[in-house]
């Protein structure tokens, strides 16, 4: 099924169904993102962050429900997870994961969108960890938790996380959303 056709289908779907259905679906995916992120946490010591598999649901939300839903699921779901134990990362996560979901929902080929979303996530965290947090850290000590060198090390686990999220998100999209 072409992506244009699919976007049309989604528009049709949301216009027919009440907005409550959309709200429920988006919050369900955001909650699942938060829960999976909290449940499977592997610390990345270099940046004081952690590896997780919540990206699967962010990419699924983008692919299935479009960019707006992807943005909300990524930003809210992951930030809620960060609130438990890693509140310092909330600003970065809100921006990066939100962007990841938004990109996953772009009206382009699904595989490309998912991979692009993963790249955006890896690059986004690198920018925050290598430049923005150290810069902010000079003024506000709570942000002084990472350095450009550490951000370089975190590229590898972040890339693994991104690829796992993209593959998992695509697989889920095929088995959930691609049903008619």
């Amino acid at each position: 099924m072409s992506s244009k056709f699919y976007q049309k289908e989604i528009r049709k779907m949301t216009s027919q169904k009440s907005k409550f259905a959309q709200t429920a679906l988006i919050s369900a995916l955001a909650a699942l993102t938060a829960v999976t992120t909290i449940m499977v946490r592997v610390p990345i010591p270099a940046t004081n962050g952690y590896f997780n598999i919540g990206d699967v649901f962010i990419i699924l939300a983008g692919l299935w429900l479009g960019p707006k839903a992807g943005l909300i699921v990524g930003a809210v779901g992951s930030s809620v997870a960060d609130a438990v134990g890693f509140p310092v990362y909330i600003p970065a996560t809100f921006a990066v994961k939100g962007l990841e979901g938004l990109v996953a929902g772009l009206p382009i080929k699904k595989t490309v969108a998912a991979l692009l979303a993963a790249i955006v996530m890896v690059a986004g965290y690198y920018v925050f960890e290598a430049f923005i947090y150290p810069m902010l850290g000079n003024r506000i000590p709570m942000f002084a938790i990472t350095t450009p060198e550490a951000a370089l090390i975190a590229l590898l686990p972040n890339a693994v996380q991104g690829i796992a999220g993209a593959v998992g998100g695509l697989a889920l999209w095929h088995s959930i959303a691609n049903k008619k």
Binding site: A24, S27, A28, A30, A31, A34, V35, V80
Partner: peptide
Amino acid sequence: GLHFALALRVFQHVGTVV
């Protein structure tokens, strides 16, 4: 308000599912 309430309830529901 109703949309926010629904969203929060879905969040709670996921907690019970897990």
